[in-house]
Design a protein around this nucleic acid. Structure first.
Length: 292
DNA sequence: AAGACAATCAACCGCCAGTAT
DNA sequence: TATACTGGCGGTTGATTGTCT
């Protein structure tokens, strides 16, 4: 019995990404994170791609903080040094090089540095096999993870939001208007969430909530920009921590596949359509969050 | 100018570990 | 506890681009 594939490869597009696909994915991820999980993302974003492919595209190419090409001498030396210490742990090596991905480092190694490395070790006559130290991974990873381990208590009573409507909007309202209102609400909520963060070096409140939320993938918070979608999950966590009667997550309520709301939405809906349709839900729960 | 070859790098594959059910 | 699912990773492939003859 073989492993079940992550998606139906006969129904997904493969090969190079088009500009349009990039735009859809970038916009979606910047606003919603990975919307719960990468496997489900393509359907929600209206992309005919495998979820894994979306994740890879975002992580290796679309993330705004990425740098491509032009490795410096310092980076070369660091890669060579780390490879000598830990071998081909590309993700660990990449984590030490801001803006670089494991794929970038790996490609750069295979095309450029490998030759230099081999020349160096053959020059010395002593080929040192890459010997990963017993806990080197852990020490490096622990250094990275330590930030996400901080627990951050949720803010007590947030102020009211200027852009929060207490009345539901008509879903037939102009998309641009809905998007604008959602953007305003999103910006205010983001400010609200970021403000209580007591330390400059530590994670944001949103990130702390993400790492403390059992149902939230760390990938969401490590994307660099906390999305409205991620925030919704945090809000729900906060609500449950505040002993409210909220039992189901907003995420499932507004976006999940099994609930009435999710089932009512055709899979082909673009996220803009979904945003318009879910605006009322976001508003309602946000209102609940603020005034409970 | 054109074909052969090399270099580059985006994308895919398959496995593993962690987590949810 | 067993199973399924998902994210993450390293290895590899293949299309594209550049260079050489």
């Amino acid at each position: 019995m073989g492993r079940s594939p992550c998606c139906d490869k006969t129904r997904v597009k493969r090969g190079p990404w088009s500009q349009e696909e990039d735009t859809i994915l970038r916009t979606f991820v910047e606003r919603f994170g990975n919307a719960g999980n990468w496997i489900a993302l393509p359907q929600k974003a209206g992309l005919k791609r495998c979820g894994k492919s979306c994740r890879l595209r975002w992580l290796n190419y679309l993330r705004p903080e990425l740098r491509h090409g032009g490795f410096t001498d310092e980076e070369d030396n660091l890669i060579l040094s780390l490879y000598g210490e830990i071998g081909s742990k590309w993700s660990v090596i990449a984590s030490r090089l801001p803006g670089r991905t494991d794929n970038d480092v790996k490609n750069y190694w295979n095309t450029k540095l490998k030759k230099r490395y081999l020349a160096t070790i053959t020059g010395k006559g002593t080929p040192p096999p890459p010997t990963p130290p017993p806990s080197s991974d852990d020490s490096v990873a622990a250094a990275d993870d330590s930030q996400s381990q901080d627990d951050e208590p949720p803010p007590s009573t947030p102020p009211a939001l200027a852009n929060l409507d207490t009345t539901l909007v008509d879903t037939a309202v102009d998309d641009d208007e809905l998007l604008l209102k959602s953007e305003q609400l999103y910006t205010e909520l983001m400010d609200l969430i970021e403000q209580p963060s007591p330390t400059t070096a530590g994670p944001s409140t949103a990130e702390a909530w993400a790492s403390s939320s059992s149902g939230t993938s760390p990938t969401v918070s490590s994307s660099g920009s906390c999305s409205m979608w991620t925030m919704n999950v945090h809000d729900t966590t906060l609500l449950s921590e505040s002993s409210t009667s909220t039992s189901s997550s907003l995420f499932e309520y507004t976006y999940g596949g099994d609930d009435a709301f999710g089932a009512a939405l055709p899979a082909a809906y673009s996220f803009q359509d979904l945003l318009a349709a879910s605006y009322n839900e976001v508003t309602a729960v946000t209102h609940e969050f603020l005034y409970y």
